[in-house]
Amino acid sequence: VSVELPAPSSWKKLFYPNKVGSVKKTEVVFVAPTGEEISNRKQLEQYLKSHPGNPAIAEFDWTTSG
């Protein structure tokens, strides 16, 4: 189950709350306009370098507050 949070234009930000008793931590995933899922800052940096014209990296908020 995921919750969609505010994201930069043409992107989606999905929040996957951890299940009770789960060892997996809460996860935030950005979905690029191409449909590619980005789950960490390093991936995001690589994606933005190879896909010019996207929002600046500073516009991506990895917190769950939206």
Rank of each mutant, 00 (worst) to 15 (best):
K42D: 14
P33K: 01
K42T: 11
T34L: 02
N40G: 07
S9E: 15
G35Q: 02
P17N: 08
K12M: 07
K24C: 15
L14K: 07
T64K: 07
H51M: 03
T34R: 01
S65P: 15
S65F: 09
K19C: 14
K24L: 14
E45Y: 10
L48H: 01
S50T: 14
L44K: 00
G66L: 11
S65W: 08
G21T: 08
K19F: 13
Y47K: 00
T26G: 15
I57K: 05
G21A: 08
N54E: 09
K25D: 14
A7N: 04
K49A: 13
E36Y: 03
P6L: 07
V28H: 01
F15I: 13
I57C: 05
A58M: 09
K49S: 11
S10G: 15
V29R: 07
I38N: 00
E45F: 09
P33N: 02
S9T: 13
F60P: 00
D61S: 07
D61P: 02
V31A: 02
V20E: 11
R41V: 13
S65G: 12
V28L: 08
N40I: 03
P52N: 04
F30I: 01
H51F: 06
K42P: 09
V23F: 11
F15N: 05
Q43H: 08
L5M: 13
K19D: 09
N54H: 07
K24A: 13
S9D: 15
W62Y: 03
S39V: 13
T34I: 00
S9V: 12
P17M: 13
P52I: 04
I38D: 00
K49F: 10
V28R: 01
I57D: 04
P33M: 02
D61Q: 06
D61W: 03
S50P: 00
V23Y: 09
R41A: 10
F60D: 01
T64C: 09
A58Q: 13
S10W: 10
P8C: 07
I57Q: 07
G35L: 02
G35C: 03
V23K: 14
V23T: 14
I57P: 09
G35Y: 02
G21H: 09
V31H: 04
H51A: 03
N54V: 04
A58Y: 12
S2I: 15
K19V: 13
I57N: 04
F30M: 02
P33I: 03
L5Y: 09
S22C: 11
I38G: 00
K42L: 12
G53P: 03
V1W: 08
T63C: 09
R41H: 14
K24V: 12
L44H: 00
L14Q: 04
S39T: 14
S65M: 10
N18S: 13
V28F: 05
V29Q: 04
V31R: 05
S9C: 15
E59W: 05
S9I: 12
V20A: 12
G21K: 08
A7W: 05
Y16G: 03
S39L: 12
K12L: 09
E37N: 10
P55G: 05
A58H: 15
F60Y: 03
F60K: 02
L14C: 11
V28Q: 01
N18M: 11
K24F: 11
E59K: 05
Q46S: 10
P8H: 05
V31D: 00
T64F: 11
S2F: 15
A56Y: 06
E36K: 04
L14A: 03
S50M: 12
T63Q: 08
L48F: 02
T26N: 14
E36F: 04
P55I: 06
N54R: 03
P6E: 08
K19M: 13
N54L: 03
V31L: 11
L44C: 02
G66W: 08
E27M: 14
Q46R: 11
S2R: 13
K25P: 09
G53H: 06
L44N: 00
S50F: 09
S22R: 10
S2W: 13
E37M: 15
P6I: 07
V3Q: 07
S50H: 10
V3S: 07
H51S: 03
T63Y: 07
P52G: 05
P52T: 06
P8A: 04
T64G: 09
T26S: 14
P33C: 02
G21R: 06
K49Q: 12
K42W: 13
T63G: 12
E37P: 08
E27R: 15
T34Y: 02
S2E: 08
P55V: 06
P6M: 07
G53S: 05
S22I: 09
P6H: 08
Q46C: 08
A7Y: 05
S39Q: 10
K49W: 08
A7Q: 04
F30H: 01
S39R: 15
K25S: 12
Y16W: 09
R41F: 13
K19E: 10
H51K: 03
V23A: 15
K13M: 02
E4F: 09
E4Q: 09
W62I: 02
S9N: 14
V23E: 15
N18K: 09
W11E: 05
V1L: 12
P8D: 06
I57T: 05
A56F: 06
W11H: 04
E36A: 05
Q43R: 07
S2L: 09
E59G: 03
K12N: 05
S2G: 12
S50C: 08
E45H: 09
Q46V: 10
K42I: 12
F15V: 14
F15G: 04
P55R: 03
V3P: 06
A56Q: 10
I38Q: 00
P52D: 06
G53V: 05
L5G: 07
A58F: 10
R41G: 09
E4V: 09
V31M: 07
Q43E: 14
V23G: 15
K12F: 05
